[in-house]
């Protein structure tokens, strides 16, 4: 699955080929939202797949 197909991908207004991929993380001490800049057409790696959500 590509980032651009995920509901957690938010394309950048100036450059839709790039965007932010948002992940929800709950670690032993805190819960947080993490974001990472990605290319829209890149494949989502396996370790982030659970956050992909079509």
């Amino acid at each position: 699955m590509k980032y651009k197909d995920s509901k957690n991908f938010f394309p950048h207004p100036d450059n839709p080929q790039r965007g932010d991929f948002v992940e929800r993380v709950v670690d032993p001490r805190q819960a947080y939202y993490k974001v990472k800049p990605v290319n829209a057409n890149d494949e989502i790696p396996a370790d982030a797949a659970e956050f992909a959500g079509k």
Partner: peptide, 19 residues
């Protein structure tokens, strides 16, 4: 990567994850 912790009103950290 950057993050925002639940309930936080101030943001920014010098690493990519809280730990």
């Amino acid at each position: 990567p950057i993050f925002i912790t639940d309930h936080a009103q101030l943001v920014g950290y010098m690493g990519t994850l809280p730990h």
